[in-house]
Design a protein around this nucleic acid. Structure first.
Lengths: 143, 143
DNA sequence: CTGAGTGCAAAACATTTGCATCCAG
DNA sequence: CTGGATGCAAATGTTTTGCACTCAG
């Protein structure tokens, strides 16, 4: 997916940011691990194997940057740490089933909530830009 | 609302836990601040005014305990800290609109998602025990 | 060249834990 | 009395920051 890299390059250019090797590498790792929900530490461990001279702080700063640019999203599974995933290119929302037993996270899509969302926005005069839904329970294995 | 205190007392008794003055005080503060979403630090500040000899660690331990007992719920607004609120007595779910600009949190109820939830549970063979929904956007004031 | 980006170590926070002391039942 | 509960300080774990050095544009 060479396009993602080009996207990043352009995005960075518009803000006078630079496309460094570290940023390229972290983007690549995110691409290689789509569907997983990596923490900064996870990424740091992977990154170290390929380029030992990279700092954890840079991982954090890069994830922060990518998040600001909108190419990744921060996830929060009520753990002690943040996780990250590549944003969905389109508007296809996807959300999570979180197993309270083993912590497994299952993804699902929805297209049902639009009406509900519109209604809600009206009622509270609130301009909704995104939503995040999590269902908690027991997964197949843990029941 | 004397009943809440009695509830707590009974709950504690069944597990051989004790009803200490600190636990009473923290329950009272939670009752006095319904609808707000207090952090441990918030509670600690309030608690200190009324009983200067109480430790932050006790606040955390008490909130943890209350959470286990199910009388409060932990909230996570993608901040750096946890917040807490008294659980809804009945099954009435309530969720949040989070303003991305000012951080304001607006509550709303829903009874719409049941069907969606059932369907989802079926499809993924996932036993859902609760759900958490957050919508993000701009509130009335910040638009 | 030059300012943005990086690595490293130190700092900053929220939360947890060890331990001696205290007190509810 | 006695084990659960507390206060304090120290420890932990994640994320952030200061600063001198590096490198992409």
């Amino acid at each position: 997916m060479e396009s993602k890299l080009q996207d990043l390059k352009s995005l960075l250019a518009t803000k006078n940011y630079k496309l460094t090797s570290q940023r390229k590498l972290i983007l690549q790792i995110l691409l290689d691990h789509q569907g997983e929900h990596l923490s900064a530490e996870d990424i740091y461990q992977i990154v170290k194997q390929e380029d030992s001279g990279i700092g954890l702080a840079t991982v954090y700063r890069t994830l922060e940057l990518f998040s600001d640019l909108g190419i990744i999203q921060q996830l929060n599974f009520d753990e002690d740490r943040r996780r990250y995933e590549l944003g969905t290119n389109n508007d296809e929302h996807h959300h999570h089933l979180v197993c309270e037993e083993c912590g497994r996270v299952i993804e699902f899509n929805d297209e049902i909530l639009e009406a509900f969302e519109d209604d809600l926005a009206d009622k509270h005069n609130f301009k909704i830009t995104q939503h995040r839904i999590k269902f908690y329970g027991r997964c197949k294995e843990c029941q």
